[in-house]
């Protein structure tokens, strides 16, 4: 049995290594690319040996893109700022609206609550391209087109159903008795919601918020159509790297690295809460 388990653990180790290599390779490659010039990236055969350069990052941060044909301006940093503003705004709005709604759906079952919750989810069923055309027309008529407010409003539609459905599940998992106990202890329903329900569903709210943030961050099509150049997020802004004189692989790689950094940091930060949630869950019952 001991020998068996030794072989077993070796095999398991190898399998895990293969999986890690498979999933991590593109990311590692992109990071390596971001420190190379277009020439070294495109040489054949490819090699991991190169002289690292910070030119790509410098170009992105200063906004001056030097190609071998010409020098042009890019607004990458502004795009990044737009992405942050739009995503944070949308998630914040969706949380403010979604968390109380989720609580209400979880605790107050009425005849129509299930239908309403489903209707909200159905916003996500329609292909974005179908929604886009009428949305563009409405936005132009309402004057919302090409405003941050209008964009956040659309982005929030992506986040809300997600938050609503995930957080509702977490609220449902909280024992009603815990909330009853707090009410009987002399507290109003609102302070019960604030002091008991929200903290206990905290991990769920954090997870839903993170997921919603990622969805918002990675959205492309709404921003492409509804936003003009100065309000475009990184996803749309990245198109600028496809220039007349060729594709700027090095800068694209650097842009990718810069644009996944905020999401990554947020995920690492949220992880603390997610883990805490698991250990709180163990106390239940």
């Amino acid at each position: 049995m001991r020998e068996n388990s030794l072989i077993e653990s070796w095999l398991r180790g190898i399998a895990i290594a293969v999986v890690i290599l498979f999933f991590m390779f593109p990311i590692v490659w992109i990071i390596l690319m971001s420190f190379q010039t277009n020439e070294t990236i495109l040489r054949i055969p490819p090699s991991v040996v190169f002289e690292p350069t910070l030119d790509n990052y410098r170009a992105l941060i200063t906004g001056k893109l030097e190609t071998n044909a010409a020098s042009l301006d890019i607004a990458f940093m502004r795009n990044l700022g737009n992405s942050v503003l739009l995503s944070v705004g949308a998630v914040a709005l969706a949380l403010i609206l979604g968390v109380p709604a989720a609580y209400s759906f979880a605790r107050h079952k009425t005849r129509f609550s299930e239908d309403i919750a489903f209707t909200l989810l159905s916003f996500r069923f329609a292909p974005p391209l179908l929604v886009l055309l009428p949305l563009t027309i409405y936005f132009q008529k309402l004057g919302l087109s090409d405003t941050y407010f209008g964009l956040i409003w659309v982005y929030q539609l992506i986040c809300l159903p997600l938050i609503l459905w995930i957080v509702r599940g977490y609220f449902e998992d909280i024992s009603e008795d815990v909330e009853y106990a707090y009410r009987i202890g002399g507290h109003s329903w609102f302070s019960t919601f604030r002091k008991i329900a929200v903290p206990l569903a905290g991990p769920g709210i954090a997870a839903a918020g993170l997921l919603a943030f990622i969805f918002a961050w990675n959205n492309f099509i709404f921003a492409l159509v509804l936003a003009s150049a100065d309000k475009q997020p990184v996803t749309v802004g990245a198109l600028a790297f496809v220039t007349a004189s060729g594709i700027q692989y090095g800068q694209i790689a650097a842009a990718i690295v810069l644009s996944i950094t905020p999401t990554l940091l947020l995920a690492l930060y949220a992880q603390k809460y997610l883990v805490e949630g698991l250990s709180l869950g163990a106390v239940k019952g």
Partner: peptide, 20 residues
């Protein structure tokens, strides 16, 4: 009368302590 105004105390089978 709302539960918070009834002046009753209650203990639950599953304890229902606030874990946080």
């Amino acid at each position: 009368v709302d539960p918070e105004d009834r002046g009753v105390g209650m203990a639950f089978q599953n304890f229902a302590l606030y874990p946080h």
